[in-house]
């Protein structure tokens, strides 16, 4: 699911930001959506020195991304994505789906 070296930094940010100031971030979405990542980095810079350092490293990786690579402007904010995720049921193969409606076994 995760393909680049931004992941370990994002995971560390997840842990540090959760501890202080108690913010929970979506690591996967951070890797996929640059706008969301920049918002997270803004929070990290205001948290503590180590989080700010991690934010700087992540930003360097963002700047050094391959030419031609772009952010995901078609998905404007993480909030919008999260809302739609919560509203829509997960895609289920019809065969499997029938099996789990109203009963587990």
């Amino acid at each position: 699911m995760v393909h680049d070296d931004k992941f370990p930094i994002a995971a560390q940010l997840f842990i540090r930001l959760k501890r202080s100031p108690g913010r929970v971030i979506d690591v996967t979405w951070m890797l996929e959506n640059e706008l969301y990542a920049l918002e997270v980095l803004k929070v990290a810079r205001g948290a503590d020195a180590e989080s700010a350092e991690l934010a700087a490293r992540y930003e360097t990786l963002l700047r050094n991304r391959k030419p031609g690579a772009t952010a995901a402007p078609q998905q404007p904010t993480a909030f919008a994505r999260t809302s739609s995720f919560m509203a829509e049921p997960e895609p289920v193969p019809a065969e499997v789906g029938r099996h789990y409606v109203g009963s587990l076994r």
């Binding site: 049921p89 997960e90 289920v92 499997v96 789906g97 029938r98 099996h99 789990y100 409606v101 109203g102 587990l104």
Partner: peptide, 9 residues
């Protein structure tokens, strides 16, 4: 939504 949606394990 019990009985309507599939609750995938």
């Amino acid at each position: 939504n019990f009985g309507k949606d599939a609750f995938l394990p």
